[in-house]
Simulated scan of single mutants.
Amino acid sequence: MRFVHATLPQRIRFASGAAAAGVRAEVERLDARRVMVIAADAERVLADEIVADLPVALRHDEVLMHVPVDVAERARAAAAAHEADVIVSIGGGSTTGLAKAVALTTGLPIVAVPTTYAGSEATDVWGLTENSVKTTGRDPRVLPVAIVYDTSLTLTLPVELSVASGLNALAHCVDSLWAPRADPINAALAVEGVRALNLGLPGVARNPSGLDGRERALYGAYLSAVAFASAGSGLHHKICHVLGGMYNLPHAQTHAVVLPYVLAFNAPNAPDADRRLAEVFGAGNGLAGLQALRATLDAPTALRDYGFAEADLPDAVEAVLKSVPEDNPTKATADNLAVMLHAAWEGSEPA
């Protein structure tokens, strides 16, 4: 066994109902005096409660999917104008993504307070979109110095969005089994992440107002993101980044739709990954287990339901082909990618 594994430095606070106290403790630990709060308008009331006792210098609510460059520039300018010395981000992946965009050029530390299962808070990956092209990269400056997980903050997330966000987290796990820097530690984290999400997400669907299922799902989302941060982007995430940037598709739903098609595409040439997934799902193979979970959750099934047009498929295939990792288990060609993406567009059975 030979591998190189990087573990990212980060503090984690996990306690339901303790977001405000946790954020205050982390801001005090940083000795910060001028807090920039990033939270979308929809999270305004929640954010007000969490930061009520903090020295807030500015509140910034211009949050958009895929972090357009012009949006990032305005947030950076606001941080500089108000001399912010820490960022507190409260929200989902788009909010965390904007905080990372500011940290990328300013070096400001981030205290992240997630309200979904996106997982961006546990990675050093940033993403910016310009002219319908999403560019991603890795930089230690964008890794939040601390994450404050409070499961009660996810209670207002509707079941439909919880399912999509949770399957996005599960996609981090699956991709981590064959991504460019996959290793045994990533695999251990990913498999435990799948286990937690496979138990937690049905609990969320059955009892949306309960904490047990959501706690399991949030724990699984963290594990999935840590695995992904080390393993890197595999085929699944390359596809979804292309589709999100080019066609402004909703992030979580796109990941939820594409996942079974990528698993069906790669599993025949990734037997160890498939075996691990089969075992944790308790199914004959990974795809069968995933599909059983998706059926339980009434998961999103087709990209056309989210505004992706059939006429866009040829351009999407060409763009995806350029970004496929060299060591992807199954060799990607224009032909087999076209078949896969068309199936995901129409929602046919993965094969």
Results as ranks from 00 to 15, higher is better:
Asp212Trp: 15
Gly193Pro: 05
Asn198Pro: 04
Leu201Gln: 11
Asn198Glu: 09
Cys240Asp: 14
Gly232Cys: 11
Val242Tyr: 10
Leu201Arg: 10
Leu235Gln: 03
Val191Gln: 02
Ala229Gly: 05
Gly245Trp: 00
Tyr247Gln: 07
Gly193Gln: 09
Gly200Leu: 01
Arg216Glu: 06
His251Ile: 07
Arg206Asp: 15
Leu235Lys: 00
Asn248Glu: 13
Ala231Trp: 05
Ala205Asp: 15
Glu215His: 00
Gly234Arg: 01
Asp212Arg: 12
Ala225Phe: 02
Tyr222Gln: 11
Ala231Asp: 02
His237Thr: 02
Pro250Asp: 04
His241Ala: 10
Arg206Gly: 13
Gly234Asp: 02
Glu192Met: 11
Ala217Cys: 10
Leu218Thr: 10
Gly244Thr: 08
Tyr247Arg: 15
Ser230Phe: 02
Leu199Glu: 13
Leu199Asn: 14
Val204Pro: 12
Leu243His: 10
Ser230Leu: 11
Asn198His: 08
Ser230Gln: 04
Gly232Arg: 03
His241Cys: 05
Gly210Tyr: 10
Gly210Lys: 00
Lys238Asn: 03
Gly210Leu: 08
Arg195Val: 14
Gly232His: 01
Tyr219Met: 06
Gly193His: 04
Val194Leu: 07
Met246Pro: 09
Gly234Trp: 01
Gly234Phe: 01
Ala196Phe: 02
Ala217Glu: 04
Gly193Leu: 12
Ala217His: 05
Tyr247Ser: 00
Gly203Ala: 05
Ala205Gln: 14
Ala252Tyr: 03
Val242Arg: 03
Ala252Ser: 12
Ala221Ser: 15
Lys238Asp: 01
Cys240Phe: 01
Arg195Ile: 08
Pro250Gln: 08
Leu235Ala: 01
Glu192Tyr: 12
Gly213Glu: 04
Ala221Glu: 07
Asn207Gly: 08
Ala229Thr: 03
Leu243Ile: 11
Ser209Gln: 15
Val204Arg: 10
Pro202Glu: 05
Glu215Trp: 05
Ala225Thr: 05
Leu223Phe: 03
Ala217Val: 07
Met246Trp: 07
Leu223Tyr: 08
His236Trp: 00
Tyr247Leu: 13
Leu223Thr: 02
Pro250His: 07
His241Ile: 06
Glu192Cys: 10
Ala225Gln: 04
Leu235Glu: 01
Gly244Arg: 09
Leu211Phe: 08
Gly213Leu: 10
Ala229Val: 12
His241Arg: 06
Gly232Glu: 03
Ala227Pro: 03
Pro208Asp: 15
Leu199Thr: 14
